[in-house]
């Protein structure tokens, strides 16, 4: 008889907390408190499915990318997003095992609205400038949130993030290259970038989530920090993003859509106009501009291809 089985839940929890406090990594087969498992499943399946849904707005510009080089690069970039979805869903799927759930359940949860995807991927794209801006600033924001979890107490997530962040370096430069070419280009091209910034600004602010649960009624940040899944709060991450990217935006001669925005030396933080958080709540409830269209596209392609999965489910070798 296993001696672990004889330990009380409390002792197990105590040992678990000791392990993560000591910087030990938790693995898929290790004992973990239900609260930890559920927090991880929510976080990682949402992260994973957001990559899969995030491929859709960008893929709109894959066949349209202006040159051979841009076509190849954005194809590779969107492929990476699907690849990140693959890595993350694998991590989530292993966590879901005790509940007997698989990838098809994750897809169903997405389709019936139980599994949310990131607010930015509900937005429409209007021009090639948007494709560049997603690569530059949306990926920039994603890099900030993802590197914040590289030291995650959950080993498989940390390892997936390690791979993802390594590829994000390419994504960041890919985005910068598109934006740089446009910013240094013709009047029309410069307008394209400025319009893209204006269009994405609110979404970028919302990207990091509300500063506290008072803003929107719920926030997962407290529990993920408690279990050492992440380090910084939503607001700290948003501030980091401003610090890294505002000077770069301005250096290209682009304008911030928020004229009140400035750095307060005394408070040591960026002061900015809050986005409309009620809009945020609507968007993540799949009521954003392109939420239903993208869900519909994902559902249609999934169901339309069901025969392929059925066909090969029958083979064993």
């Amino acid at each position: 008889m296993s001696n672990l089985a004889m330990k009380s839940e409390e002792e197990m929890l105590e040992q678990f907390i000791e392990r993560i406090e000591a910087g030990d990594k938790i693995e898929a087969d290790d004992w973990m408190p239900e609260e930890y498992r559920i927090a991880l499943i929510k976080l990682i399946s949402m992260h994973g499915i957001s990559e899969i849904m995030g491929a859709l707005p960008e893929k709109e510009w894959v066949p349209k990318a202006p040159t051979l080089h841009r076509k190849l690069a954005i194809m590779a970039k969107v492929q990476d997003e699907m690849g990140h979805g693959q890595l993350l869903l694998r991590v989530a799927e292993d966590l879901l095992k005790p509940y007997g759930k698989t990838r098809s359940d994750i897809m169903q949860d997405l389709f019936n609205g139980d599994l949310k995807f990131h607010n930015v991927f509900h937005m429409d794209t209007k021009s090639w400038g948007d494709a560049g801006l997603i690569g530059w600033l949306v990926d920039g924001a994603a890099i900030i949130t993802q590197t914040n979890m590289l030291g995650s107490s959950y080993g498989p997530y940390a390892r997936a993030l390690q791979r993802i962040c390594a590829e994000e370096v390419f994504h960041a430069q890919h985005g910068e290259a598109i934006i740089m070419a446009l910013a240094e280009g013709t009047e029309e091209q410069r307008t394209m970038v400025q319009e893209a910034i204006n269009h994405w600004w609110e979404s970028l602010l919302m990207f990091f989530g509300p500063a506290s649960k008072e803003t929107t009624g719920s926030s997962k940040q407290d529990i993920t920090i408690k279990y050492k899944i992440r380090k910084k709060t939503n607001e700290q991450l948003r501030q980091d993003f401003f610090t890294k990217y505002i000077p770069r935006i301005l250096s290209l001669g682009l304008k911030l859509p928020d004229p009140t925005m400035h750095y307060d030396e005394e408070k040591q933080m960026w002061i900015y106009q809050q986005p409309d958080w009620s809009e945020f709540k609507k968007i993540i409830k799949n009521q954003g501009p392109r939420s239903q269209a993208r869900l519909n596209l994902r559902r249609t392609s999934y169901e339309n291809n069901a025969w392929v999965r059925d066909a090969l489910a029958a083979t064993t070798n």
Binding site: R90, R103, R159, A160, R163, L312, T316, N317
Partner: peptide, 20 residues
């Protein structure tokens, strides 16, 4: 490297390199 889902090992094999 990592794990992947596939219907069988030949399929897993043709997906492995490009995924990881």
């Amino acid at each position: 490297q990592f794990s992947l889902l596939a219907p069988n090992k030949d399929m897993a094999f043709i997906m492995a390199q490009e995924n990881f």
